[in-house]
Design a protein around this nucleic acid. Structure first.
Ligand SMILES: [Mn+2]
Ligand SMILES: [Mn+2]
Ligand SMILES: [Mn+2]
Ligand SMILES: [Mn+2]
Lengths: 136, 136
DNA sequence: ACCAAAGTGTAGCTTGTGCTACAAATAGTG
DNA sequence: CACTATTTGTAGCACAAGCTACACTTTGGT
């Protein structure tokens, strides 16, 4: 049963997934918070992720450099078009994975916990398989 | 459809999963390489993960501090009892996730790529659900 | 035994993400 | 308006994991 793919390719893929993880989770959270309460502050994200406001602030600076987010000092955060697009994609994938786990028989609480990590490692092919499973 | 669990708890769990990821992947790789060729060198791990030998060296030093691995300068790596136990657990979980994805209809190549990341985010409950799915 | 090649170690750099402590700005309350 | 509480920013720390460059050890071939 030798691997069809070299192990190194899988580990490289995983490292790449992790490199985009923060961006995906942040734009998704920002978009959700914007929908829920009209504006998104550093402090909202601090609570959402259970990290210090400093961590939030520095990640937002990076996302701004990458053109996903707009942010002026002491002002709320907003998403660029690119950021909104990534948020929508991320949310959709998140939902599919979550729904999949629940349909599979995992409890809602545990499904929510697991989905938050799993989502970043699901390829298009696997996502499609999950989509079909969900509608079956 | 409000979350049953706070989003922050999921993100904390994901961060914890990532904190143990390198240890799990390394002891598993070491154990596999030991089985395959009798000894495991820094260079074997370098190839396995597609990183520099420096990265391998520093991660091994940490795993040694954590009591998972034995290593003397210029000598091959070996696993402690604790390391071997973690390797066995990690391999078993890896196999279950991989088998699950393939049974689900994902191609072998993609299943191998995705499993390498997903495995670290699968809770005991989800793993059990996958086990049952695999034998169905 | 020697020399070259391969493998390993170490110094030192980078980036990302976590933190506390302190300073500044904004918001809320009397 | 003034004062306080909350929010946000910044300095500076830690740690993990990536890298290159260079030094040292080990291995293998002549
Ligand atoms: Mn996530
Ligand atoms: Mn998410
Ligand atoms: Mn992950
Ligand atoms: Mn892995």
């Amino acid at each position: 049963m030798k691997p069809t793919t070299s192990s190194s390719a899988s580990h490289q893929r995983t490292r790449k997934d992790h490199a985009t993880e923060a961006a995906e989770d942040y734009v998704e959270a920002i978009d959700d918070i914007l929908s829920a309460k009209g504006e998104c502050r550093v402090d909202d994200l601090r609570k959402h992720f259970s990290v210090s406001h400093v961590t939030v602030s520095r990640i937002l600076a990076r996302l701004q450099r990458e053109g996903l987010v707009r942010k002026e000092a002491y002002r709320p955060v907003s998403l660029t078009k690119k950021g909104k697009r990534l948020a929508d994609q991320s949310r959709e994938r998140h939902q599919i994975v979550l729904e999949f786990l629940k349909k599979l028989g995992v409890s809602a609480e545990v499904a929510e916990m697991d989905a938050e990590g799993i989502e970043h490692h699901v390829s298009e092919e696997t996502l499609e398989v999950m989509r079909r499973f969900n509608t079956k």
